[in-house]
Design a protein around this nucleic acid. Structure first.
Lengths: 328, 328
DNA sequence: GACGGATGTGTGAACGTGCACACGCGGGCA
DNA sequence: TGCCCGCGTGTGCACGTTCACACATCCGTC
């Protein structure tokens, strides 16, 4: 910067003002911009961060084991979306995977150390020590998905799981199915529980608790087990709402083995619109989760908190269009 | 740091030596460590980076459009592996997706500006402007996969595509298949071309150019088209080596529609051991790509270049075990 | 004509480290 | 005894910015 000032014949202070805004005359600005181009000047982030007490970095916290991270069909798109927004705003995105207890310790230290100005938190559970740390540090943050009850001060971006589940179940019912069941996964998470709630609301009087198979995870194997259970308790089942596309794929496999045609004998719908949905045969009718948009919005919410002149942002619920393919 | 020094009754310099190594007496060390714990001291990265002229960050360059990024079955695991190694070594990983020409400009500026100490480059093409920039800056870097011919100075980590293709083709042939074809994808990349080379080598005299279907991408749709082509040119085909698992999945779909049993009528093998491999019915026999290990090794190679006392690292080729499932 | 506000510029003091250098002390050796 | 060397410690400067403050000029107003 010193060199730029010398080349332009002006002081350091004015160069700084050109870069950061302030009263600068047109001539001075022109001279300095020419000098910057000539010298090939690039501001030094470390020095800037030092004096500003900022790091220009936002942490992307995934509170999940490494293996599940890769299985999750949405997380990659969420990361990508967040990264897009952050990099345009000249912020770095730092990935922090919290798997073991050792990670928790390391990441906690990292967050406390001022290495990041804010955080995006994915798949937080209730009572997670990390979320407590964030709340205590008053670190600008945003949850993806419903946050644990404790920290209502931190905004979140997500989708209306109950409403979406209700909508697609109603659509499935409208195709004339009489015995509609659900493979309900991950009921220990709000997303899983909400999808079941929506399903129940859609059926109203016709809801039959025997036609709900509860399975632990959103994965293929759970779909296989859930569908077997449903077929056993009601052989005449002709419609299935699977809590995720992977679950639906597992269910379709069981139906095929049982000689049931999809959608001729059984109509089936999923949730996520992930890569599974177009890989099944026939392709899956499902609820589209705008994962990239979720990531973008999460990043925006963090950045907005970083600009202290703006008010605390409200939560964001994104629309989830139904994608109707051939499975129902 | 000043506070720590005061609390321990010793000077700043000695505190610095405790943190960075140097002559320190046992008593002084103990006193300072106690003071650090008491004060809750965390070194300031910005100040350290400023004086050391380091950023403690490594760029992860993906030279691919956003959409393909998510389709790629390996890239997530590579990122995860690299991130693991880097974070343990107290380095940040900065994701840089180069999609448009605007990205190229932004990322070039980023790399030149000393924002990163090194780079990991994924899916580079020949003559990519970014790789030229890296070579000119003499930025410590590592390629994932074969680098473009130009920059032999930069090491790479990858797998032996030709050898692996040869091995699994031989294994397929050993099951007694007479008419073995290949769906060869992405021949404009070295990985694609090498897999075809390996296939040809395995068959030797028995190689029949009519039984090679060339398709543009490593994806499902290419598998569908490739398999149709093979069935047309040789209805008696009883073995297929698909250039990727996604291609194999597409091929299996076509075989099912054509009423051919897998593996009873046609044995089929893939490449990658990605999530596709366990989602097909029957599950796919394939070549395992150690993606997470590739990421780890790439990060190691960059870190080694950063420790200037060590010699320039050599390339790394990782082993690719065959995973034999039920499709052949 | 004095005064105050708007506009524009220069200067010095941080920000929190690492590192070079100076210095002190004790022991081995010629 | 004098000197060198290994060990251990303190001090000042530099790293490249931002920011507050001081100052300078011009214009309009009481």
């Amino acid at each position: 910067m010193h060199d730029v000032a010398a080349a332009a014949g002006i002081s350091r202070g004015t160069v700084s003002r050109v870069l950061n805004g302030g009263y600068v005359s047109a001539e001075a600005r022109a001279a300095i911009e020419a000098a910057i181009a000539e010298v090939g000047y690039v501001p030094n982030t470390a020095a800037r961060n030092l004096v500003r007490r900022r790091s220009q970095a936002v942490g992307f916290l995934a509170l999940e084991p490494h293996s599940l991270l890769l299985e999750d069909p949405n997380i990659g798109a969420i990361m990508l979306g967040a990264n897009e927004v952050l990099s345009v705003a000249d912020h770095q995105m730092v990935n922090l995977v919290v798997d073991s207890a050792r990670d928790t310790e390391r990441v906690t230290r990292y967050l406390s150390g001022g290495f990041v100005d804010g955080a995006i938190i994915v798949s937080a559970r209730t009572h997670d020590p990390i979320t407590r740390v964030i709340a205590e540090l008053k670190l600008p943050a945003t949850f993806v998905g419903h946050p644990p009850d404790l920290h209502r001060s931190i905004p979140f971006v997500g989708i209306d799981n109950a409403g979406s589940a209700r909508a697609i179940t109603e659509r499935l019912a409208a195709t004339g199915r009489r015995h509609i069941g659900m493979i309900a996964a991950a009921l220990d998470r709000d997303s899983g529980a909400d999808r079941l709630t929506g399903f129940r609301a859609a059926l109203g009087e016709r809801f039959d608790p025997r036609l709900v198979a509860e399975v632990p995870l959103y994965d293929y194997a759970s779909g296989v087990n859930g569908m077997r259970e449903l077929l056993e308790s009601e052989p005449g089942i002709d419609g299935v709402f699977a809590a995720s596309d992977a679950v639906a794929a597992g269910a379709m496999e069981v139906l095929r083995d049982a000689g049931r045609g999809v959608p001729s004998d059984v109509g089936i719908v999923g949730f996520d619109d992930s890569s599974w949905a177009t890989r099944t045969q026939p392709p899956l009718s499902t609820v589209h989760q705008p994962a990239r948009e979720i990531g973008r919005n999460a990043a925006e919410l963090v950045l907005r908190q970083l600009r202290d002149d703006e008010p605390a942002p409200a939560n964001v619920l994104l629309p989830t269009p139904i994608v109707w393919r051939a499975s129902a």
